[in-house]
Design a protein around this nucleic acid. Structure first.
Length: 289
DNA sequence: CTTTTCTCCTGTATGC
DNA sequence: TGCATACAGGAGAAAA
């Protein structure tokens, strides 16, 4: 549920609180959190201990810390928040919260870093970095709309070539990353496109406008500290953003559309909820766009 | 190869 | 009050 803006809020917090510091120990609790680290949690802890955090990076919903072991070897510590993951900076004397899955202690004996995750869809893992300092294990994740590597024209062309529902494609992180259910619905509302329209039925300019709306709505959300529709999304200090006040579609079932007044409708799509204005975003007829 | 469905997980809300 | 059920949904595995 944390999407690009919420993850960026966390990245900025990490940049301010842990970059430049040296990790003394990493404790991993339970078997779930390091499941993507194939060599296991003991290996993960051993490799992370003693490294210095050189940077905090992000692509889409993926975060990673660039770690330097001081001997010329650099690795990426990937952090994915999943549905409910939190990275919290805390006083080491503060009691452990429920659902604490990992704890980073630092050589300076300053505040520690905790990975807390109620639903345990998130996790941490180490990976090699490529020449651009992107972990090699997330090379299948496309650049997000804020990256220099984002090729808007190529993304439009790729989307135009697909017959799947356009919302499904917005959520496909291998096409463009960072967009989840909330910002997909918001971008579709802004673009006045129904998410079940086949992508190939949209004109290239319409696809371009949709992508630009997705970028713009995520930028606006970031400007307000992210969306806190769920109280689980917080920055590293445990504080929520307030972009949920600015949502036009997501979670607005029954409320009048801010553009035309028609009640916002909710429908099941891909086993998730989709919110849309039935007037501004007409439902496509089956078999055509 | 591409596309779609299933699965992982637990706290909260709702219905009987 | 208790118990069952629905729901939130990112992403990778599995299936089609």
């Amino acid at each position: 549920m944390p999407e690009l803006p919420e993850v960026e809020v966390v990245r900025r917090g990490l940049a301010g609180h842990v970059v430049g510091r040296t990790i003394s120990t990493l404790e991993v609790f339970g078997h779930r959190v390091a499941r993507r680290h194939v060599a296991g949690s003991a290996d993960l802890s051993a490799r992370v201990a003693g490294t210095r955090i050189e940077g905090a990076r992000r692509r889409g919903k993926y975060l990673w810390l660039v770690l330097d072991d001081g001997a010329g070897d650099r690795q990426g510590l990937i952090v994915h928040l999943g549905m409910s993951g939190q990275m919290l900076v805390a006083d080491p004397a503060a009691p452990d919260p429920k659902h604490l899955h990992a704890r980073f202690r630092f050589a300076d004996d300053g505040p520690e870093l905790r990975f807390v995750d109620q639903r345990t869809f998130g996790g941490i893992a180490l990976a090699d970095l490529d020449d651009a300092d992107v972990p090699t294990t997330i090379r299948h994740i496309a650049p997000d709309p804020f990256e220099a590597a984002y090729d808007r024209t190529a993304v439009i062309r790729r989307i135009k070539g697909k017959d799947s529902a356009v919302k499904r494609i917005l959520l496909d992180q291998t096409v463009v990353s960072g967009i989840g259910n909330i910002y997909a619905d918001e971008a579709l509302w802004r673009a006045q496109i129904h998410g079940e329209r086949p992508a190939s039925s949209l004109t290239k300019p319409a696809i371009g406008r949709l992508l630009d709306h997705a970028r713009d709505v995520m930028a606006a959300a970031l400007g307000e500290g992210g969306t806190s529709f769920d109280a689980l999304y917080v920055n590293v200090n445990g504080e929520s953003g307030y972009f949920d006040r600015s949502l036009h579609a997501y979670g607005q079932e029954g409320r009048p559309c801010d553009r035309c007044g028609t009640p916002i409708r909710r429908a099941q799509f891909m086993n998730r909820s989709s919110f849309f204005c039935p007037h501004c975003q007409p439902v496509p007829r089956r078999g055509r766009g």
